[in-house]
Write a protein that binds this DNA or RNA. Structure first.
Length: 267
DNA sequence: GACCCGATTGTCT
DNA sequence: GACAATCGGGTCA
């Protein structure tokens, strides 16, 4: 059975054990994050924004680096077919700048059927298959061929459903229970946890009924954001070193910590 | 049509 | 830290 079929099934049914989460858009990022939320709070400042509001198309109309930073602290919401809502606070992103960026799929202005959504209007999802078995999820930004990769989330709601989706979709058989921090700490992990697949490619985050962004109630202060080299692009020459990955310092939900980059911002 | 590679992950040593 | 899994997309002949 293919991963896609499993995802389709996930869209139709919810775990009978998942009773912890109730539909309440105001809970996201407000309640202390599981076990570790109190650590995180020192890196955030209160925002006056309406945290329950869906982010509209105007939010996405900014350059990739700016959008990658702005996405930190926002809440990604995925509504499954049965109405279950899965929620996660974005804690790690990567910016891909477009034709001049040697690490981007749009390098050199390449436009193919696969990466067409990178060239579509800001806020369009670019979802692609990697290594034949995983998906990665990007949001197009201002600038042709520019986008932001979502790398990690702090899970806020629907954790048991996420756990079930991860258990079902990852390769091999069930061997052990996944810890909370293993649910969304990687670009393909978060796609599994939120049942995001290729069918989400080219969808509009500002309009779609099954996936959208909401204002986080807490946004990271500038000094709490680490800028580090991107992951897994070793062949991209000088572009591999550019600090285009952004994450919330001290967040236990980040996929890869860069201690050198963190020392740089302390200096 | 053939071949190579990958914005990853999980397991094993 | 090493390595396998797995297949679509890109490139080239």
């Amino acid at each position: 059975m293919g991963q896609k079929k499993k995802l389709a099934e996930a869209d139709q049914q919810q775990s009978p054990t998942d009773t912890a989460w109730m539909p309440s858009s105001k809970k996201s990022c407000l309640r202390p994050s599981l076990a570790l939320g109190s650590q995180r709070s020192i890196y955030f400042s209160q925002s006056p924004k309406d945290h329950s509001a869906r982010l509209g198309s105007e939010f996405f109309g900014q350059p990739a680096v700016s959008l990658a930073r702005a996405l930190l602290g926002q809440v990604l919401v995925r509504r499954l077919g049965d109405g279950t809502e899965l929620r996660g606070c974005i804690v790690e992103t990567e910016a891909y700048l477009g034709p001049e960026d040697e690490a981007a799929h749009s390098r050199g202005g390449r436009q193919t059927p696969r990466n067409r959504s990178m060239f579509m209007k800001p806020g369009t999802l670019y979802v692609y298959l990697i290594y034949g078995m995983y998906f990665c999820m990007n949001v197009s930004s201002q600038g042709d061929g520019a986008c932001v990769l979502l790398r990690a989330l702090e899970p806020l709601g629907g954790l048991e459903t996420m756990r079930q989706l991860r258990r079902t979709l990852r390769k091999g058989t069930i061997s052990r229970a996944l810890k909370d921090r293993e649910l969304c700490s990687g670009p393909s992990k978060l796609c599994q946890a939120l049942a995001i697949d290729k069918s989400f490619d080219q969808r509009d985050l500002a309009q779609d009924e099954a996936v959208w962004l909401e204002h986080g109630s807490l946004e990271p202060s500038a000094s709490a954001v680490v800028a580090a080299a991107r992951i897994g692009i070793g062949r991209a020459g000088e572009w591999a070193q550019k600090p285009l990955r952004f994450y919330i310092r001290g967040s236990p939900w980040v996929s890869v910590v860069d201690k050198v980059a963190e020392q740089d911002i302390q200096a």
